[in-house]
C-alpha cells in the first residue's frame, strides 16, 4: 500500500460514509439505502487488485460499523466488505475488456454482502435480522447500487488510476 493509495482510500471512504449517513439515508427511498461505501470499495479494488481490495474493504466496513448512528456489533461490516473487496479485486484485469462487468460485479456483491451481513447477524443472535426484513431490503439494495454504479465506480477507478499510473503487478512475470 503506497501513501497515495492510503490517502485516496481514506478520503474516498470518509466522504462515502458521511454522504451515506447524512444525505442518502434521509432520502425518502423505499427499502434499502444506496451503499456508497461498497461502490467505492469495488471501484478501488477493480483497479488496485485483491490485496488492496481486502484492506480497503476492511477499512470501509470498519468505518460503517463505527460512525454514528451505527449500532450493531463492530466488525460485521468490516468482515463483509473485506470479502467483497477481495472478490472485486479478482476481476481487476477483466474489467478493462468489458464495460458491463462493473455492473454485474456490483449487483452480485450488493446481494452477496447483504446476505452475508444478515447471515452473520442471525448467527450472532441479532433480533433485528428477520427473513421479512432481508427480503424487503435485498431487491432495492441491489437496484439502487446498480443504478448508482455508472456515476460512482468509473470516477473512483479514474482517481485510483491517476494515483498509480502503472500498477506494479502488471509487470511481474506470470
Amino acid at each position: 500500500m503506497t501513501f497515495g493509495r492510503v490517502l485516496l482510500a481514506t478520503v474516498l471512504l470518509g466522504t462515502a460514509v458521511v454522504l451515506q449517513t447524512v444525505v442518502l439515508s434521509r432520502l425518502p427511498l423505499p427499502g434499502a439505502t444506496p451503499d456508497l461505501v461498497l461502490l467505492v470499495v469495488v471501484g478501488l479494488a477493480l483497479v488496485q487488485g485483491p490485496v488492496s481490495g481486502l484492506l480497503t474493504g476492511f477499512a470501509g466496513g470498519l468505518l460503517l460499523d463505527l460512525v454514528p448512528p451505527a449500532d450493531g456489533a463492530v466488525g460485521r461490516w468490516a468482515l463483509v466488505l473485506c470479502l467483497a473487496g477481495l472478490v472485486a479485486g479478482r476481476y481487476a484485469d477483466a474489467v478493462e475488456r468489458s464495460t458491463i462487468l462493473p455492473l454485474v460485479v456490483v449487483a452480485g456483491l450488493a446481494a452477496g454482502s447483504l446476505l452475508l451481513y444478515a447471515g452473520l447477524g442471525w448467527l450472532l443472535g441479532d433480533p433485528r435480522v428477520t427473513l421479512a426484513a432481508v427480503a424487503r431490503t435485498l431487491p432495492t439494495a441491489v437496484l439502487y447500487d446498480v443504478l448508482l454504479t455508472p456515476f460512482v465506480v468509473p470516477a473512483v477507478m479514474a482517481l485510483a488510476r491517476r494515483v498509480e499510473p502503472e500498477p506494479a503487478w502488471h509487470r511481474l512475470p506470470r
Binding site: 451515506q20 449517513t21 447524512v22 442518502l24 439515508s25 434521509r26 427499502g31 434499502a32 439505502t33 451503499d35 460503517l64 454514528p68 448512528p69 451505527a70 449500532d71 450493531g72 461490516w77 447483504l114 451481513y117 444478515a118 447477524g121 441479532d126 433485528r128 435480522v129 426484513a133 431490503t137 439494495a141
Partner: peptide
C-alpha cells in the same frame, strides 16, 4: 436536529 440516519441494510433503526 437529526443529522444522520443509519443505512437501512444495517437492519437497525437509529439516528444521530
Amino acid at each position: 436536529r437529526v443529522i444522520a440516519l443509519g443505512p437501512a441494510q444495517g437492519f437497525a433503526w437509529t439516528a444521530t
